[in-house]
Simulated scan of single mutants.
Amino acid sequence: MTPAERAELALLLEVAGAPKPGNVDRERDLADLRFEQFLAGAVGARAGLERAADPEEPLGDAFETAVAGMADAAGTNTQFGCLLLLAPLVRTAATGDLTRERATGVVESTTVADAAAFYRAFDHADVAVQEPPEGAAELDVRRGANAVPALRDRGLTLADVLELSADRDANAGEWTRGFPRVFRTAAQIEASDGPLVDRAADAFLHLLAEAPDTLVATNHGEAVAREVRERALELQSADRDAVRAFADELVERGVNPGTTADLTAAALFVALERGVSVRD
């Protein structure tokens, strides 16, 4: 398999893992998102993932292509954050060893043009994000392509843009700090056994217990994000029925730890690149 194919498989395995508290999985849909839409989104992103694997292609354009394909196939935003994490990891894997050091090099090589493509990607999908940092309203990603002139005036690369929110957004933090949680979780997936969809669900719960989910904090506030994390901590040694009950509760409350799903998908990709297989 190629890195792009493994990235697509990682997206499929992530959404198939169950139970994943508050998220779409093979056992449950959300009111406005269905399991099959995530399958379609993964397939639709394939062309962009292929571009990410080509070192001659601008990484930002590859990401925008993946997001546009996802949104067109799924009819909505299903995996924006997953694709943001996967793009530099796919580029790293396609050009040599997949290590944190080499992934950091890919991030540091991004350009202002990559940042512009990142902003344009927000025109293809509705993405829940936090308010921009103080003094950076003109760089609000929700402005999409309209923010590109300000971006170019400041000469900000994609790495620079994500650094602005690294302390408040888990995915941006992974990009700018060498993907520590992604690689750590990949090692846990590698060290465990059983079906990969079950390992995906276990990885999700572990990540949810590790830190408050950014999307939950954005949509419901920091207190709810901390509460969800504490509940996940309590369930670390629980059986799947207990986790399933928590999953149902979060769905009923409309609490969706989507950033945790992004990290899970990226960790699955790293594990697949390191030799984990559905045949194990």
Score class of each variant (00 low, 15 high):
residue 80 F to H: 12
residue 129 V to W: 00
residue 45 A to F: 03
residue 275 G to P: 11
residue 146 N to C: 14
residue 231 R to H: 08
residue 169 D to A: 14
residue 81 G to H: 06
residue 129 V to F: 00
residue 157 T to N: 05
residue 50 E to I: 13
residue 197 V to T: 12
residue 141 V to T: 07
residue 161 V to R: 02
residue 229 R to Q: 15
residue 260 T to H: 01
residue 165 S to F: 03
residue 151 L to G: 02
residue 74 A to T: 09
residue 112 V to K: 01
residue 210 E to P: 14
residue 143 R to I: 09
residue 58 P to V: 05
residue 182 V to W: 02
residue 253 R to F: 00
residue 250 L to G: 06
residue 162 L to E: 07
residue 102 R to F: 10
residue 4 A to K: 13
residue 143 R to L: 14
residue 203 A to V: 14
residue 49 L to K: 05
residue 97 D to Y: 01
residue 101 E to Q: 11
residue 179 F to I: 05
residue 29 D to E: 00
residue 59 L to A: 06
residue 233 L to Q: 13
residue 99 T to V: 12
residue 22 G to D: 00
residue 188 Q to D: 12
residue 40 A to Q: 06
residue 38 F to G: 03
residue 89 L to W: 12
residue 143 R to T: 06
residue 228 V to R: 12
residue 117 A to Y: 03
residue 80 F to T: 11
residue 84 L to W: 13
residue 47 A to I: 06
residue 72 D to N: 13
residue 131 E to H: 11
residue 266 A to K: 05
residue 94 A to M: 03
residue 213 D to C: 14
residue 260 T to N: 02
residue 97 D to N: 01
residue 160 D to T: 05
residue 8 E to F: 02
residue 156 L to D: 07
residue 263 L to Y: 05
residue 150 A to V: 15
residue 186 A to V: 12
residue 104 T to N: 02
residue 256 N to H: 07
residue 68 A to L: 10
residue 155 G to Y: 03
residue 48 G to Q: 01
residue 24 V to P: 05
residue 267 A to F: 04
residue 148 V to A: 08
residue 177 R to N: 02
residue 180 P to F: 04
residue 104 T to A: 09
residue 210 E to W: 13
residue 264 T to P: 02
residue 274 R to S: 09
residue 244 R to T: 14
residue 222 E to S: 11
residue 134 E to P: 04
residue 87 A to L: 08
residue 129 V to E: 06
residue 251 V to P: 11
residue 228 V to C: 08
residue 43 V to P: 01
residue 209 A to K: 12
residue 18 A to P: 07
residue 229 R to V: 01
residue 110 T to K: 01
residue 175 W to Y: 00
residue 82 C to Q: 13
residue 226 R to Y: 06
residue 108 E to Y: 02
residue 47 A to G: 03
residue 102 R to D: 00
residue 130 Q to T: 07
residue 158 L to R: 02
residue 279 R to F: 15
residue 133 P to A: 06
residue 120 R to A: 12
residue 201 A to S: 12
residue 203 A to M: 11
residue 248 D to A: 15
residue 52 A to D: 07
residue 37 Q to G: 01
residue 39 L to M: 10
residue 68 A to S: 10
residue 34 R to K: 09
residue 1 M to L: 15
residue 69 G to A: 08
